[in-house]
Simulated scan of single mutants.
Amino acid sequence: MAIAVVHVKAPCRSSRVACAGKRPHFGSAGAARNCFVPRAGLTSAATKTVEAPPRMTSPETPTIFKSLQRAIEAHVYRQIVRDRLNRLRYGAGAPLSAMAIYPRPRAITHSYARTKGMPRLGRQQSGMVRGGDWDQSRSDISKSTKLVSCRMRWIDGADWHETPIVRQMVEQIGRGLAPDGCRSREDVLARYRRLDRIFEETRARGRLLDMDELPDFHYRRAHGATLVHIARDGTCLRSGGGAHRFAIAHILDLPEMPAQLGVIHPEALKAGHLDRLRKSTLRLQAPKPGRLS
Rank of each mutant, 00 (worst) to 15 (best):
D135V: 03
V37Q: 14
L214T: 01
M152H: 07
A98N: 08
T235F: 01
K143H: 14
L42K: 07
L292Q: 04
R194S: 15
M99R: 09
I230M: 12
H25A: 15
L277T: 01
D135Q: 06
M99W: 03
R16L: 08
R185H: 09
K288Q: 10
D275E: 15
R191P: 01
V148M: 14
L195F: 09
C12E: 13
G21K: 01
T281N: 03
V263H: 04
R203A: 14
H244M: 05
R39D: 08
R194K: 12
P11C: 08
R232W: 04
Q124T: 14
W134C: 07
G174Q: 10
L277I: 10
R221T: 07
P164Y: 05
P258T: 11
E73F: 05
D275I: 00
S15Q: 07
R70F: 15
T57M: 12
S139Y: 09
R89I: 08
P179C: 11
H265G: 05
G181R: 13
G290Q: 01
M128R: 08
A178P: 03
F26A: 10
V76D: 13
G234W: 11
L96H: 00
S139K: 10
G181D: 04
T57V: 12
V188L: 14
G117A: 06
L42Y: 09
D140Q: 02
R291V: 14
Q136C: 09
E256K: 01
G241P: 01
Q124K: 13
V188P: 05
R221M: 13
L189S: 09
R175E: 15
